[in-house]
């Protein structure tokens, strides 16, 4: 189970989210001018990256908002969470050693140590990611 840090709601179970496929696939400037092959490539062809991959996610059971996420397809490490429409925070496609740390833009959220700026929410990443039984389960 992935723990995904929604920019609005904080850390939640993967089951609350919907996967939206590869991010940054721009709608063709002029679809009518594309050949069938180019159109098919726009519709159906996606990268099959080994390593850092930019993808879209929807927090469907929570705030119902879309966001982008940079996830390593090998380790599943979530390297960055950033808003729709903003550019990919790392050097695109290049897996570098320091992508996970200070690479995000000011308005995005890393999953490592920063929880979203939401007062009153119950979802600090540390408390959720604990694998031990919840305290209330036993008297």
């Amino acid at each position: 189970m992935l723990l995904i840090s929604c920019p609005n709601c904080g850390s939640r179970d993967e089951t609350e989210f919907h996967y939206g496929g590869q991010a940054h696939v721009a709608y063709p400037e002029n679809p009518n001018e594309l050949t069938d092959r180019e159109w098919a490539e726009y519709l159906f062809y996606r990268d099959n990256t080994k390593g850092a991959f930019a993808e879209r996610w929807l927090h469907s059971t929570g705030c119902r908002q879309w966001f982008n996420m940079l996830r390593d397809t090998v380790t599943y490490e979530i390297q960055a969470v950033y808003p729709m429409g903003s550019p990919r925070p790392d050097a695109a496609g290049k897996v570098t050693a320091d992508t996970g740390t200070a690479s995000t833009a000011a308005d995005s959220t890393t999953t490592g140590n920063a929880s979203p700026d939401i007062s009153g929410t119950s979802t600090s990443p540390t408390s959720i990611s604990s694998t031990t039984a919840p305290e209330g389960a036993t008297p």
Partner: peptide, 10 residues
Amino acid sequence: SLDLHSRVLQ
């Protein structure tokens, strides 16, 4: 799966 403990969920 939320942390429902009262120190977190007010």
